[in-house]
């Protein structure tokens, strides 16, 4: 196998001070077999066109900052191998459904606000003093939520979600999945404090289970199922509180 091959990379560019709408620019990049899309972007920035803007950090699928549309699918560009696309050209665009700030950089304010609103941390009615030790948890209890705790906030699921594309008030996959993660944690007592957002009109009830969030999630968080489980739980709790209003509502 020859070591170097040339691939065409078309990038969606947006330079707000020069243009009102994004435009396309195509680069030809010589790549090695082990290069990912992010390597090609870095190569372009270093050797061909220093004005190209994009976000990245870890280069190993943990920081969640390199999410972009690659040939129409939300991907971590540090995990998308160029050889899988070659000899076809690769189109790189900023994550859809988010406002573009410049080139491949999007504004994540909306997601950050929603994430904060679901209170993704352990809430105790009363903290016990440090002297009493840790909050213990069995392996089975850990398993209950572990999958949902793998989220790296890459927002690929928001780019995959047509419901979010149509209705920006939708709280969305990752934020709900993270709320669910803490609700399922045996050490947490914050269920009631999250319910107003998770079970709001803009929360779980907006979701129609397209399911694409779970398909694109690089960490197999499965936010679609987190949302469905929350719908089932909320509905049964509501039914219980109607049938037995005296019952304790946990």
């Amino acid at each position: 196998m020859s070591d170097l091959r040339t691939i065409k990379i078309t990038v969606l560019r947006y330079r707000p001070e020069e243009e009102d709408e994004p435009t396309e620019q195509t680069y030809e990049v010589e790549f090695r077999d082990d290069w990912v899309v992010l390597d090609a972007l870095n190569h372009i920035k270093d050797h061909i066109d220093g004005t190209l803007s994009f976000r990245w950090s870890c280069r190993m699928g943990v920081c969640g900052s390199c999410g972009m549309m690659v040939n129409g699918e939300p991907k971590l560009t540090c995990a998308a191998m160029l050889r899988d696309y070659y000899p076809n050209e690769v189109r790189v665009e900023p994550l859809v459904n988010f406002p573009i700030v410049r080139d491949l950089v999007t504004d994540m304010t909306d997601f950050m606000d929603k994430l904060k609103a679901v209170k993704p941390w352990i809430i105790r009615e009363e903290e016990k003093p440090v002297s009493e030790g840790e909050y213990l948890q069995t392996p089975d209890q850990l398993k209950d939520y572990k999958q949902f705790s793998q989220c790296i906030n890459c927002m690929l699921c928001y780019a995959a979600c047509p419901v979010y594309g149509l209705e920006h008030d939708f709280v969305g996959p990752a934020a709900i999945a993270l709320g669910h993660r803490y609700n399922l944690d045996s050490r947490d007592e914050g269920n009631q404090q999250r319910q107003h957002i998770i079970a709001s009109k803009e929360g779980i009830w907006e979701c129609t289970y397209v399911g694409e969030c779970s398909v694109v999630c690089p960490k197999h968080v499965d936010p679609a199922e987190a949302i469905q489980q929350t719908k089932v739980a909320t509905t049964t709790n509501r039914l219980k509180s109607l049938v037995m209003p005296w019952g304790n509502k946990k």
């Binding site: 707000p16 976000r55 994540m108």
Partner: peptide, 24 residues
Amino acid sequence: MMLDSETTKTYTRPISKAWWLRDR
């Protein structure tokens, strides 16, 4: 990146009505 949406000129590509046939 958090930014001031009042002063930053951003661009959002709208989702099409027939997104289930063709999405951007």
